[in-house]
């Protein structure tokens, strides 16, 4: 079917699948049925079955992911709204974010390196804890594989949302503020939405962790990777 290559059709299909995936998740309430993951999987299946090369899909897809950068800029609004909250607990928040950011990058790089991953893959894993648009920007700037980053980031989010609170309890992190922050720092927007389900307070601190770790990771990663022996 030559028509399937039509870029407007492919954009329509992307909207349709995402909309349907969101509906299904709402009905069933399963975190694992993440609409992003489901839509990506279904589109890859569709392209493979119809034999449409990715480059054809990309022509339409480009118009969607064009909005990634403006969307990151828009995150400045919630950051502004949280400034007061940050000021109240400046030191605990900043220090825990810095430590979380460093541990996140160093641990993923070292484990991947020891297990024999290539530099290209290691670079793509480095920003895995932060929200996808920021993580992809970081990976793109350093010569990794942005789509691998996107997939890993989504999986990290699911991991945090499903097991995050269990891991925190096991690790004896008890204060609600610390738990919320950790959820956002380790597993970005998906972790934040899981925290939001507990209560608004958890959610507010989680979104703080999400934004601050995003900024720190973007600033630190390009300079940290060479120190860890990864060309960037």
């Amino acid at each position: 079917m030559e028509f399937f290559k039509n870029q407007y059709f492919l954009i329509f299909l992307t909207f349709l699948l995402f909309f349907a995936a969101k509906l299904v998740q709402k009905r069933l309430g399963w975190v694992v049925l993440n609409p992003i993951l489901v839509t990506i999987t279904l589109l890859i299946l569709f392209l493979s079955v119809t034999g449409i090369p990715y480059t054809d899909y990309e022509k339409g897809g480009m118009m969607i992911d064009f909005w990634l950068k403006p969307a990151v800029v828009a995150l400045g609004v919630p950051l502004y709204l949280q400034l007061e909250q940050i000021k109240k607990q400046l030191l605990p928040i900043l220090l825990s974010q810095l430590v979380g950011c460093l541990v996140g990058i160093v641990s993923v790089v070292l484990v991947a390196k020891v297990l024999g991953a290539t530099n290209e893959v290691i670079v793509s894993l480095a920003p895995k804890s932060v929200t996808t648009p920021i993580a992809m920007e970081v990976t793109r700037g350093l010569g990794g594989i942005p789509s691998l980053t996107a997939a890993v980031v989504v999986c990290v989010g699911l991991l945090g949302a499903v097991l995050g609170f269990k891991i925190l309890t096991l690790g004896r992190v008890k204060s609600p503020i610390a738990q919320g922050l950790s959820m956002g720092t380790a597993s970005h927007a998906v972790g934040t939405s899981a925290a939001m389900e507990r209560s608004r307070k958890y959610g507010a601190y989680a979104s703080l962790g999400l934004t601050l770790n995003g900024i720190l990771t973007a600033i630190i990663t390009p300079y940290l990777l060479p120190l860890l022996g990864i060309g960037g």
Binding site: T14, I44, Y57, A71, P133, P146, S147, A151
Partner: peptide, 19 residues
């Protein structure tokens, strides 16, 4: 934009099929 953040990274995610 923030409410629909997830949607914007579907196309780059599909590029996974290349890797």
């Amino acid at each position: 934009l923030i409410a629909n953040l997830g949607f914007f990274f579907v196309p780059p995610g599909v590029a996974l099929m290349l890797y």
